[in-house]
């Protein structure tokens, strides 16, 4: 009888550690969702004299912009011009879709929200200008920043 009572008093350390670690893994995985929304396929331009942002902007709209490429890395052409892909938080959008998304942001929070443009370094300015004219400026956003790789 005595032996049995001793057995029941033991704390199940192994199982407890198992559950604690599972909980830690769950929180770590769910906490890194925001980080995964960054389009890391974009090759940003270098700004060697500008310091990198140390704190993330609390409220901003990030538009990712890159050239569509085929499996061999060649530019995809569409109607005599390279096909440009736009996305916000990895949600692919057309130029009109970007304009609508910005309009929604403007209606919800106003046009003081900074717009960050993460653009592939090889994209010609005419396409950035098109984005600015047909979506960003058209909706009324004036605080615009071009994102580049800065100094750490």
């Amino acid at each position: 009888m005595r032996r049995s009572s001793e057995d029941t008093l033991e704390t199940p350390i192994t199982q407890m550690i198992d559950i604690v670690f599972l909980l830690i893994i769950f929180f770590v995985v769910t906490a890194s969702v925001d980080k995964d929304l960054v389009d890391d396929t974009i090759s940003l331009a270098q700004a060697k004299n500008t310091n990198a942002e140390t704190t993330a902007k609390k409220l901003s709209v990030t538009i990712n912009m890159k050239m569509a490429r085929d499996s061999q890395g060649r530019k995809v052409m569409l109607g005599g011009r390279p096909k440009i892909l736009y996305n916000i938080a990895l949600q692919e959008k057309s130029l009109d879709g970007i304009r609508q998304a910005l309009q929604t942001v403007k209606n919800d929070t106003g046009n003081f929200v900074p717009v960050l443009i993460r653009v592939d370094k090889d994209v010609e300015y005419r396409y950035i200008d098109e984005l600015l004219a047909k979506a960003v400026a058209r909706v009324g956003f004036t605080k615009v920043s071009i994102v580049a790789i800065g100094n750490e």
Partner: peptide, 14 residues
């Protein structure tokens, strides 16, 4: 992942 140090170059639109 190696975090890319991103710099924001602000511009004014016309």
């Amino acid at each position: 992942e190696d975090e890319i140090p991103e710099a924001h170059l602000s511009i004014n639109l016309p």
